[in-house]
Nucleic acid binder design. Structure first.
Lengths: 196, 196
DNA sequence: ATCGAAGGTGAATAAGCCTTCATCTTAGCC
DNA sequence: GGCTAAGATGAAGGCTTATTCACCTTCGAT
């Protein structure tokens, strides 16, 4: 009995294991995790990785895509809070804090944020509308617009600026309290200048 | 006729060329510049690099040390301005702007800032007092102390925090105006909270 | 139970680097 | 001019990784 698109069950199981191992290793080691390492953790041979993903790049992309989906739900959650009546500036701040939190435990997530940074200009409307990256960009964009409308963040801020700021937040290489202060400072700096 | 410590003139000339080439390549490519590349730009063979520097690490360290010296004069300049009567908070802001400016044109300089980040805790008093890294740390530390005394920056900020912030400033991969806004935001965020 | 094809294996290949070293050059002294 | 040790050379060695592929294994329909 075949599954899905006529793919054997063991193949699907292996694919899942590979993705799981890749997620774990990329999370702690970053994108320099080796194919050998990933294969070993997945309990398969390297060749199997290549049956499922044409190149390392594609495997990493799959992992990053996964993180991007998490990013999308984080950003959409923040936007939902605003729709429910929360001040957009505060929600944006919360979003920063949540993102920073994940950075500390998941380097793959940070990589994903880097992609956001790179692609925000090009992909916001070009990409398929349902893409995780497009959803993230859309939600942040709307959050930003509302916060600016409410006068809670500086009017000159762009979506790309936010992506850069998000990508600049340090990960686990910086101690927790220092990281928290970093985020505090950025959030405070987002407010409009006192004397415009 | 020998120069300096009994070193042949051609050897000294080559050493200078190597350092110059390494500076240029590390500035634009980052620390991943290859030894082959550096040798070619210097007009020597790779073996010559190894006569002057035991390992790539040492060559890179020499380049970084050079950038660290620039960092030291920048920080000491900012401190001097304060001694001359400038508000310490403003000087600190200026320092950030100047550093960001150099990042854009010199990746080696940014690497150097990363080392500052790592070493700030350990080396501030441990290193030989005259070291560029120690001078930088000392000047920033004093700048911070004065700014806090004047109530111009948040009291909970530490030297390590500033190092992290400095290291987080983006380089040339981010357009000039976005970079400027980044720095603006950080500087604004350095101010004490309105309601402590 | 059998069989064909999808799937898995892992040694071998390839490419990119850093580093070494036997050998050749040359600066600087007589 | 000749000598010699410091200096320069760059092919070769060695290491790390991604990627391939000829050859087994196993699933799953019959």
């Amino acid at each position: 009995m075949l599954h899905d698109g006529g793919v054997r069950v063991d193949a699907q199981r292996n694919r899942a294991r590979i993705l799981e191992a890749a997620r774990a290793l990329v999370a702690e080691t970053g994108v320099d995790a080796t194919m050998e390492d990933i294969a070993r953790h997945a309990g398969v041979a390297v060749g199997t990785l290549y049956r499922h993903f044409p190149a390392k790049e594609d495997l990493v992309a799959a992992v990053v895509e996964d993180s991007l989906a998490q990013m999308a739900s984080l950003t959409e959650g923040a936007l939902a809070a605003v729709h429910a009546g929360a001040p957009p500036g505060v929600s944006l701040g919360e979003l920063f804090r949540e993102v920073a939190e994940r950075y500390a435990s998941d380097r793959a997530f940070k990589s994903a944020a880097g992609h956001l940074d790179v692609d925000v200009d090009s992909e916001i409307e070009a990409a398929a509308p349902g893409t995780a990256i497009a959803r993230s960009a859309l939600a942040i964009s709307e959050l930003l617009r509302r916060a600016q409308l409410a006068g809670e963040v500086r009017a000159d801020l762009t979506l790309a600026d936010l992506a850069v700021l998000l990508a600049a937040v340090p990960g686990a290489e910086v101690p927790r309290d220092s990281r928290a202060r970093f985020v505090d400072i950025v959030i405070a700096g987002l407010a409009p200048a006192l004397h415009p």
